[in-house]
Amino acid sequence: MSTAPTLADWMAAVQHRTEHALAAALPSPALAPRRLHEAMRYAVLGGGKRVRPLLAHAAGELTGGAPEDVDRVACAVELIHAYSLVHDDLPCMDDDVLRRGKPTVHVEYDEATALLVGDALQTLAFQVLAERPLRQAPGVQLEMLAQLAAASGSRGMAGGQAIDLASVGRKLGREELEFMHVHKTGALIRAAVLLGARTGPALEETALERLDHYAKIVGLLFQVVDDILDAEADTATLGKTAGKDADNDKPTYVSLLGLSEARRLAEDMLCEAKASLQGFGPRALRLGQLADYVVHRAF
């Protein structure tokens, strides 16, 4: 009787296949323009926990999607995420010098190159998702492209970043803070789950609603934990500059609630996310484990 791999082994396998798929999708640094292609690979490869690809593969397991199709979704979402980090680190945004334990792209290269890296990674994400048919019907693949675009744009991640920049120095209420992070962080995490699920047979409406609720809560949960880490962890642990939110007078769950209340909120969200998976049975094993992982990487 075979047993499922441990979470650590499963995560390592997904991270390895994601790294391989990203390396294959990114242009070779031997191709012109070489400096841009080298910088794109610098921004994407060899770093990060690949939380969004992990969630996409966990959701693909829930619906029985083909791993090769989930790889495409995982790459597309991770390329959007990587582009957002490159742009967020620019001097005109968060002005950070460290990301994933190494100099940010504009520090290692220059600002103009970093801007182009973000632009190129964004367009590559849609190319990866569109260039070959998935096992689902073409109409579903088009819907998936539209879903990724919506999660990335002004009504999703980019809009959330705009709200974040406009909120510096302001005290936001819980509702306003949640609205910002549903868009800035949550939209792409939600897309990773829902797009991963769409690589398999369609879920019934009530099941899809429960999965969507899980994805929304995990997206917020990820941000609550990020805020806790920013307040508590050191730069070496984070791989980026610690305490940057407080230094920049940004509203966070910690500044709003305090550390102990933020931790309590994270535990409450974890229970809510896992409750949304009830009824899916063993197929939701990895989604439940990843919700635990998101929280307990901090405390």
Rank of each mutant, 00 (worst) to 15 (best):
F179A: 15
M180H: 00
A162C: 14
F222Q: 05
I163Q: 15
R135Y: 05
G156R: 03
V140G: 00
G156V: 06
A192M: 08
L221W: 06
L134G: 03
E209T: 06
H181E: 11
L211Q: 04
A187G: 06
L134P: 00
K216E: 13
L194Y: 12
T206D: 08
A187I: 02
A187Q: 08
F222I: 03
L148H: 06
A191M: 08
L129E: 12
H181K: 00
M157C: 12
L142S: 09
A149T: 15
P133K: 14
G139F: 09
S154D: 04
G186L: 12
A130V: 07
V140T: 12
L129M: 14
M180F: 00
S154M: 12
H181T: 01
L172G: 10
Q161R: 09
R170N: 05
L220Q: 12
G196L: 08
R170I: 00
F179N: 11
A149F: 08
Y214W: 13
L220E: 08
A137G: 01
H183P: 01
E204F: 01
L165S: 03
A150G: 02
G196I: 07
Q147R: 11
I228Y: 05
G153P: 13
L177D: 10
Q141T: 11
V218Y: 10
L165K: 08
V225K: 05
E176T: 06
A158K: 12
A233L: 14
L194T: 14
L220N: 03
L142K: 01
E131D: 15
V218T: 12
A151D: 07
G156D: 12
G219K: 11
T185G: 07
A215Y: 01
D230M: 08
E175S: 14
K184M: 04
A146G: 11
L194M: 15
V168F: 06
Q136F: 05
Q161E: 15
E143P: 02
G173W: 05
D226I: 10
G156I: 04
K171P: 00
L165T: 11
A231V: 10
V193H: 04
P133W: 14
G196V: 07
G196H: 03
Q136H: 01
V224N: 04
P201Y: 00
F222M: 07
A202R: 15
E209G: 01
Q141V: 10
G160P: 12
L221K: 03
M157H: 13
A150K: 09
A162I: 12
L129A: 08
E204D: 14
S167Q: 10
S167L: 13
L165Q: 13
R198P: 00
A151M: 04
T199V: 10
V168H: 08
G173D: 14
V224W: 06
E178W: 03
R190P: 02
K171V: 15
L129I: 08
G159E: 04
E131T: 13
D226G: 12
A191G: 13
A191Q: 13
R190G: 04
G159Q: 05
V225F: 06
G153R: 09
K216P: 00
Q136V: 15
A231S: 11
G160H: 07
V225G: 12
L208A: 15
D227Q: 02
I217K: 10
A137K: 11
L211H: 04
A231R: 13
L221F: 02
A130Q: 13
D227W: 02
L188P: 03
A151G: 09
R174N: 02
R210I: 01
A191V: 13
